[in-house]
Write a protein that binds this DNA or RNA. Structure first.
Lengths: 196, 196
DNA sequence: CAGATATATATCGCTTCAATATATTTGTTG
DNA sequence: CAACAAATATATTGAAGCGATATATATCTG
């Protein structure tokens, strides 16, 4: 399944521009199980347009740059359903943070603590986001997928909180305040201190 | 973090050939959170060799084709530790199966049931594999990562079993024996013909 | 008023992936 | 025992995708 199909999937939910499609992968309901960057979305939309699977309406807006809003055609909808009926390729999960923790014995304890805290913070933020009532979705299948994402993130948070000692060794607990956010400045909300 | 670093990580665990490195990503402890194919492993090993981060011993074995066994050099070990101290890039999880279930309303009910059963079977197999005492690893950090993988797979299995009704709708239960897989076979099992 | 952030599209080069080619041995099955 | 499939082992190639970057403008923040 390529980026073309992913784009068709977003367009099933409603018309969108390339920029908005990317936001769907970053923030929307797709963010838990797929991703795509500009470098693949724009060429994909070009191909889809050439193949007649989408149409494009240029919206010259005052202020912001022109917006190219893409809509699914009937042929596009059919092509999407056809793709959905193929056999799914196996899941792939990649986590550099977990890779680093796996080699924790080679790591500077401070850095290990930072990687651990950051990873935990990311998944806590995900739980918060998915628990937010604003974020609820319509339709039984959407609800199912939403719940699955929440269950996984909760499992990660629970495990990491309860098995902290396995990673850091009992009696050798790293000072938690030392690993305060400071310079990183990405999406991670402030780190609520862990259970102790 | 590129494939070169991933290969160095495998070689930290012990000398290996390209073929064996790939098996580590398919079956070993890395399989839960990373992957790499031949098309990236062999070029990566070539670069590492040219950079002096690994050495290569050609083992002319009777029977099977020659085996090129790679070993980490001191420079390689240093380079690996340096890489490990960079900031990890965010996790990425991609699942075509979940994508399909998300659009379950557009799917043939048979195909939806198949995708669901297959996905559940894959994660049940993962739980079995990780619960197997043969599979236990040494070292507190390895144990931590191992436990994390198990926790996630368990959460997926539990959620999918308990929330079956959300996806399929109460009263419209799909026959379970139709797509049963048994415990043992993992990905390679025979493909029951899909719709089309 | 400066600088950062958000909206919006697009391209380039490098990395990575899936498929395929080659060669040999071991296991299976009719 | 011949025929075939599967495992062991390395390598290449073409296509796809990702990260970084360029461009342009508007709004928000200090």
């Amino acid at each position: 399944m390529d980026v073309k199909t992913l784009c068709l999937g977003v367009l099933v939910l409603g018309d969108a521009s390339g920029y908005e499609i990317k936001k769907h992968f970053e923030e929307g309901p797709f963010s838990h199980f797929h991703a795509a960057g500009f470098g693949s979305i724009y060429p994909a939309l070009g191909t889809l347009l050439a193949d007649g699977l989408v149409t494009c309406t240029e919206m010259a807006q005052e202020g912001r740059p022109d917006k190219k809003v893409y809509s699914l055609t009937e042929a596009g909808r059919r092509a999407f359903r056809r793709e959905l009926h193929k056999a799914p390729s196996p899941d792939s999960y990649r986590s550099e943070a977990i890779f680093m923790m796996f080699f924790g014995d080679l790591l500077d304890p401070d850095h290990l603590g930072e990687v651990y805290q950051r990873h935990l913070a990311v998944h806590r933020a995900k739980v918060d986001c998915l628990s937010d009532p604003d974020c609820t979705v319509a339709g039984r299948d959407r609800k199912f997928v939403h719940g699955l994402g929440l269950a996984v993130s909760r499992a990660i948070v629970d495990y990491m909180e309860n098995s902290r000692g396995v990673l850091f060794g009992a009696g050798d607990v790293v000072d938690e305040d030392a690993v305060d956010e400071g310079g990183g400045g990405e999406r991670g909300a402030e780190t609520p201190r862990a259970a102790e």
